[in-house]
Design a protein around this nucleic acid. Structure first.
Lengths: 139, 139
DNA sequence: CGTTGACTTAGACAAGGTCTAATGTAGGGT
DNA sequence: ACCCTACATTAGACCTTGTCTAAGTCAACG
């Protein structure tokens, strides 16, 4: 993750305590947190950090391509620090947990020319939905 | 669409003017509207219909499996009445238009057992992203 | 070590959606 | 045909997520 900070500094980022903390939270577990969860964890390390800064920082990381924004439903967006490896997501419908998965084959290839309607395709997202083991037991 | 209303009545739905209007809007064009767009169109036919009723009705249609809820980004959810035919979506990144598409193969099969982490899979969504012909010209 | 422009802050604001308590009504029972 | 009553609808308050603003702060260059 210090790699990340180094990369960002080379791109002209000012290295502030707030940004370091956000990067640190993202680098922790490989769970995909919401912005507010990231804020809550950041506050534990740097009590005065504001919500706006967390949102700003996440937005910058997304537009720099270091983090992927995942909107699995109409709820809060989640942030996936694993931007440098192609992967898709597996989402628990009950608790919202997201895991990274690696399906076989190239999903883009599954759309025949006759179904492209003249679109210029730039990407594809595949979201597998189901119940995680913990939620499956409860139901 | 009277099919739909009949099916719903058989499942114990009370047939109100409001619900008929919402069904009628969904049955119109095959565009995927947001809840507020549906409300706006419903108001033209039944001026006193409330936002809450539209949201309630859409939620019921979704949980009855008659309509699919599509969240393409962090914006408003859109409602797709084409729930009885398996299909996926092609979204224009610029203007947000959604088209239904029919990829080849079963995307669920692309997730190997070793990548399922004990989840009970219930479905998969594939969202192709790109630029529609109109937006591609502008850029 | 001073300067300055990028960064951060608190809190107001906005969009999308949900909830509540009061009121209305579809449709079965008579 | 007409009541009942449980289900449906309403207006509007409220909640969550996210954005914006104006004022204050500070990293890093010189």
């Amino acid at each position: 993750m210090s790699d990340l900070l180094e990369r960002l500094r080379n791109r002209g980022w000012r290295l502030t305590a707030q940004r370091r903390v956000v990067a640190q939270v993202l680098d922790g577990d490989h769970i995909h947190y919401t912005a507010d969860e990231i804020h809550a964890r950041a506050v534990e390390m740097l009590p005065e950090i504001s919500r706006a800064t967390v949102y700003n920082t996440l937005g910058e990381l997304v537009s720099l391509g270091e983090v992927i924004e995942v909107s699995t439903d109409g709820r809060a967006k989640r942030y996936d620090p694993n931007a440098h490896h192609a992967h898709q997501h597996l989402v628990c419908q009950s608790c919202g947990t997201i895991r990274d998965v690696h399906p076989t084959g190239d999903p883009l290839a599954s759309l025949p020319d006759g179904e492209r309607y003249g679109f210029t395709l730039s990407g594809v997202e595949v979201t597998f939905r189901g119940l995680c083991p913990a939620c499956a037991q409860v139901q």
